[in-house]
Design a protein around this nucleic acid. Sequence first.
DNA 1: TCATATTTGATCGCTATTGATCGTTTCGAA
DNA 2: TTCGAAACGATCAATAGCGATCAAATATGA
Lengths: 257, 257
Amino acid sequence: MHAAERERRIFEALRPTGFVSYRDLEVLLDASPATIRRDLTRLEESGQIVRIHGGAKLPEGDDASGPRLMGTSFDQNITQNLGAKQAIGKAAAALCQPGEGVMIDGGTTTLQMCPHLDGLGLQVLTNSLHIVNALLPQAGTRILLPSGAVFREQNIILAPAGEESMPRFHAPRLFMGAAAIGPQGAMQADPVLVAAERRLIDRAEEVILLVDSSKFRTQSGTIVCGLDEIDIVITDTGITPEMAKALQDAGVKLVVV
Amino acid sequence: MHAAERERRIFEALRPTGFVSYRDLEVLLDASPATIRRDLTRLEESGQIVRIHGGAKLPEGDDASGPRLMGTSFDQNITQNLGAKQAIGKAAAALCQPGEGVMIDGGTTTLQMCPHLDGLGLQVLTNSLHIVNALLPQAGTRILLPSGAVFREQNIILAPAGEESMPRFHAPRLFMGAAAIGPQGAMQADPVLVAAERRLIDRAEEVILLVDSSKFRTQSGTIVCGLDEIDIVITDTGITPEMAKALQDAGVKLVVV
DNA sequence: TCATATTTGATCGCTATTGATCGTTTCGAA
DNA sequence: TTCGAAACGATCAATAGCGATCAAATATGA
């Protein structure tokens, strides 16, 4: 293995949490301890990482450590396909008109919209506490919440069945995630999510689905809505031509980033 | 686990209430007692925390006492009179019956109830995102939120005027903070807080006010409610006999911790 | 092909970090 | 006020990580 390849792997390991232990690298690089140390020393001298006893971390400032709420599966999902999700989030944010009101469903992909919403002066209605935390530092973004009980597994706010939980609200756009998408439509693993999302869908003019391409290769539980209810799908280049055609045949506008 | 990760977790645990117990850290860090102590000692020497018997707290804000209107941030207030607030919070939590539903108003004193609510199986309705964060790790506590917009200065959820924002909810007890208390009643500095608290008061059987004794020496803006609407006041030993008598003459039960 | 330069691996002594075990101190409840 | 449990600090041994040096492997160029 070459030095360049090792460096690439080091950064790859570093990105999710901003830290790699020496032990991890020993397995990951399959190189001798001496070589690993030399790599780290070199990267530190060029200022790209900071070495600490037992490993290395990214320099302060550009670490991607976002809001960490709890040690749930959410934290694991958040780093999966992170690059694709970031690109999808950015594309989705570009669809927002300054000053308008939008709804954002909870999810690791929709979460990646938040950094790009700053300065747009939006009104965001969301049921996700993760998204609330991400938007809190943005002084110009107004955050609206529905009433209800906090559902810890997903960190979202769930209204009791049949209860009116949202202030009268209607939005031109709903940004939604999904556990899977196929010819039947968008799907979620947890049925309680379905009920929450149905309520959002009913209040939106336009439904925009944010899914990285791995979601096209998954089957998951309960159908949230058919393709006919989805207006736009934003995904990454991993989508197969067949899927793309199926979506377009169903009248869905497809955005590939 | 490495030192950097442990430090991160310590601050994460410290953020909600400004205090972590040694016991909590033992579970949270999964390290030996000696290592935890060393971490705390190191952080104290660098001035980032203050160690106290049984745990650690955030350093005090600059002005340790005296009247403060608005302007100082929540994070600074959190550490002021922390010891008194913790004791008051503990006493307040002892008033909760297992399994019942209660309302907790936002504030740095009411926040200190949260560590003592674990295991009671309460249903907590709150408008404060700080309290939500403090309660999230407690699996047995059900968290209910009203709908509305997030008001950043206090990190609470405000309903639009006249809007029905809470699920039908009625509670035996409301735990409330205040910026000041005097013969006229409880006062808040910010008028928008008054409106929010009035709404909570109307839904409670019993109103319990949590104020450290410095609040008796302060005058602040807008009256929230008269003494006749307050059932119990919990405060610390700094209260003067005259004030104590005035409260009891007004029919308020006084708890001094 | 051979000589040289670069990179990698191995070994050594040294230091830092951790965990265990004392005796002592502090806090809270009776 | 007294007593017991919990928290504390100090010390020591074990381990893991560190840097330096040298040998081996690989790449480079005449």
